[in-house]
Design a protein around this nucleic acid. Structure first.
Lengths: 127, 127
DNA sequence: TATTGACTTAGAGTCGGCTCCAAGTTGTAA
DNA sequence: TTACAACTTGGAGCCGACTCTAAGTCAATA
């Protein structure tokens, strides 16, 4: 699969894919005789994984660390697991902070609704 | 209240508070004769609000827009409400993306657990 | 064969959000 | 009164994550 196809499939700019590769997130992408990248199925799966992690804000550098551990094989299983546990913890905190803000917005949106309704009523009363 | 006290109270660096002020998030902070900021109670409430919104990733520029509308008075109620509704929508998307990633991490963490347990069992069997 | 469009690289530029620095002023405690 | 910490300003610097540019190569079509 060519880079433009991967880009289209996962809706990630070509430049970003190359940037991820430089950053170590996509190691060992095969290239044909004339130097053109050919993404394998497992490369694509990795792209999809990266997309998911990035969408939640996992830093590129940490992702790079994780993927380099994957390449190192079985001995790193525990360390990788700990990384994921840590990342999970941070995401839960983030999700909860966002939820707190959503709740606050709900409250304020409701207050604004009441103000607008009052205004409207005042207008009707005048008529 | 002095800037250092506000900084301590809300755990926001002094430099960040001044940056927010420059960016229009904290308009009309009073200063005494020698030019030193004196945060009022309502300034503090605003700081707390900003902290909450920023913790969820609301951009400084949008926050600045919102606050400038607040200063413009009643006529902007509807526009402000719409801004909050839009922001709410984006936060829900963000929260859900994070949740999706958490679910995926849970799955992977479990898989790693099983791998580690298997390894351990293999070790016992050898003994 | 000439052109077009997709690919390659290295490296520079951009953006948001801080964070720090230099140089100067003020207020309090020894 | 002098030392020192906390305040002020304008502006520079930093970091993460892209995003773009320049200069060149290659394959396929008019």
């Amino acid at each position: 699969m060519k880079i433009s196809e991967v880009s289209k499939k996962y809706d990630i700019p070509v430049d970003t894919l190359r940037y991820y590769e430089k950053a170590g997130l996509l190691p060992n992408i095969q290239k044909n005789a004339s130097g053109i990248r050919d993404y394998s199925d497992s490369d694509c799966e990795r792209v999809e994984f990266i997309k998911c992690m990035r969408s939640a804000g996992m830093p590129v550098e940490r992702l790079s660390k994780y993927i380099s551990l994957c390449l190192q094989g079985e001995d790193t299983t525990e360390e990788r697991r700990n990384m994921l546990i840590q990342q999970r913890k941070e995401l839960i905190e983030k999700r909860d902070a966002i939820q707190t803000t959503i709740d606050r917005l709900d409250y304020k949106i409701d207050i604004y609704y009441k103000i607008l309704k009052e205004k409207e009523n005042a207008l009707h009363a005048k008529k």
